[in-house]
Computed example of a mutant assay.
Amino acid sequence: MPRESYQAKLDDLREDVLYMSEVVLDRVRQGLEALQSKDEQLAQQIIDGDSEINQLYLDLERDCVDLLALQQPVAGDLRFIAASFKIITDLERIGDLATNLGEYTLEADREMYPEVDIQAIGDAVVEMVEESMDAYAEENIDATFDIAARDDEIDDLCANASDAVVRDLIEREIDDQTSEEEIERLMADVSRLLLTIRDLERIGDHAVNIAARTLYMAENDDELIY
């Protein structure tokens, strides 16, 4: 294959990975919107759309395998293809977490814990993923370290939110007049909220993974990979 054609395929791979990230992030934003507005129709669209993300992943996986098998890349090109393959795996998993948000929306009975700002946590992790993909697109080394450093902030936000939910549950008055059905509904809502917080934290973790693979791709530096 002529060098120009090979380079074009590498460029196409980068653009396709970036496109997949746009689709995935749009689903996360929709998931947050569905949770906030209790929009069941939007939630179902997110769930139904998971197959599109899975297909994007499979198509890009095939492209990566073809480039590895047919072109036998070395050095920087090899790291780029390998990093791209790992990044689409993280993106596919973020897509799964977006689907979870849709499912939580369908299952939730009522609004609880207004003091827990799920939207703020969601906005923060979406921004992290956006920045990690910008770093991948531009091979921005400094940004990869900044993104990794921000993970502690996300962890703190999620820990504080989870603590608030558990503290409220402990302090909530449940007496002999509280029906078993009410208790079950309460526990189900608490469980869903804690799972939502956990899933948002995991999206932040995937953003760090993307930054780590970008650093390895650009500098052959595995410092952020763990």
Rank of each mutant, 00 (worst) to 15 (best):
M1N: 07
P2E: 06
R3T: 00
R3D: 08
R3C: 07
Y6M: 13
Y6I: 15
Y6D: 00
K9G: 02
L10N: 00
D11P: 00
V17N: 13
L18W: 05
Y19W: 05
M20N: 14
S21Q: 08
V23D: 12
V24T: 10
L25N: 11
L25G: 05
R27V: 01
V28L: 06
V28T: 04
V28P: 12
G31D: 11
E33L: 10
L35F: 07
K38P: 10
I47H: 03
G49Q: 13
D50W: 03
E52D: 07
Q55I: 01
D59C: 03
L60F: 02
L60D: 09
E61Y: 07
C64V: 02
L67V: 08
A69F: 03
P73S: 05
L78Q: 00
K86G: 04
K86R: 12
K86L: 07
T89K: 08
D96V: 07
Y104M: 13
R110T: 04
M112S: 11
Y113R: 15
E115R: 08
Q119T: 15
A120D: 05
D123K: 06
A124I: 13
E127N: 15
V129S: 08
V129K: 02
E131Q: 13
M133F: 12
M133V: 04
D134V: 03
Y136S: 01
Y136N: 04
E139L: 02
E139A: 08
E139V: 00
I141T: 11
A143F: 02
A143L: 09
D152H: 07
E153R: 12
I154P: 04
D155W: 07
D155N: 15
L157S: 10
S162Q: 11
E171R: 10
R172K: 11
I174L: 12
D175Q: 01
D175G: 15
Q177H: 08
S179L: 07
E184V: 12
I197P: 15
R198G: 14
R202L: 12
H206S: 04
V208Y: 08
I210T: 00
I210F: 03
A212W: 03
R213C: 04
Y216I: 00
L224Q: 03
Y226K: 13
Y226C: 05
